[in-house]
Simulated scan of single mutants.
Amino acid sequence: MAVRLVGRRSYWPAYLIGAVVCILLDQALKLWTVQTFAEGEFRNFIPGVLSLGLVYNTGAAWSLFSGAALPLAALRLVVGAGLLVYLVRRPVPPLMGVALTLVASGALSNALDGWRLGKVVDTLSSHTFSFVTRLMGQGNFPIFNLADVWVVSGVLLIVLLSFRTKRSPSASASERGDHA
């Protein structure tokens, strides 16, 4: 029994390493983009699908909360740090740990931009997503960054994991017809 708990808890170093790797990847792409592109400049990366470029955002997606970079950075810092503390202190199933790590690292990387620059560096533009959002009458899809990809991927994984149902031993027995 103790081995099982220790085994489940032993994943937290991997979650922390994963968070550091995700943050470094996002920050490296942002640094390269700032050094390579003028603000507002974009170039095709995958023609018709994805472009790389540079814009700054002082708010959140779809320009929500524009001008609130520091309060948003504080909120992102609290969320990201809180999730990492949770992962260190509580055993979680591995896939849930990955999902929470993705959300935490995305939040922390964008928080780093907010504190350091007073705005978030956005680098990716999806022509495919924009096509879909324009069909829905919502204009172009927001320009985003890898941190946003981490957050959205983590949330989607959490949603998918929520559909997994755990069967209690008594429910499984009654389904098989093993009545006591």
Rank of each mutant, 00 (worst) to 15 (best):
M1T: 11
A2G: 15
A2C: 06
V3F: 14
R4K: 14
L5D: 14
G7I: 00
G7L: 11
R9A: 15
Y11K: 03
Y11V: 12
W12M: 02
Y15G: 05
G18K: 07
V21P: 10
C22F: 12
L24I: 11
D26M: 07
Q27E: 09
L29R: 01
L29Q: 09
L29I: 10
K30C: 06
L31Q: 08
W32R: 11
W32E: 13
Q35N: 09
E39Q: 12
E41D: 13
P47L: 03
G48L: 04
L50H: 00
L54H: 00
G59P: 02
A60T: 01
A60N: 00
A61P: 04
S66Q: 12
G67M: 07
A69I: 06
P71D: 03
L72N: 07
A73H: 11
A74K: 11
R76N: 11
L83D: 00
L87Y: 04
R89S: 10
G97F: 04
G97R: 02
G97D: 02
A99M: 07
S105R: 01
L108E: 03
W115E: 10
G118F: 03
G118W: 00
V121F: 05
T123Q: 02
S126Y: 02
V132Y: 01
V132S: 10
M136I: 06
G137C: 10
Q138E: 11
Q138L: 14
N140Q: 06
I143Q: 01
I143H: 05
N145Q: 04
N145R: 11
N145S: 07
L146C: 10
D148P: 13
D148V: 08
W150S: 12
L157I: 09
I158H: 00
T165W: 00
R167P: 02
S168K: 14
P169I: 01
S170D: 14
A171G: 06
A173V: 01
D178P: 03
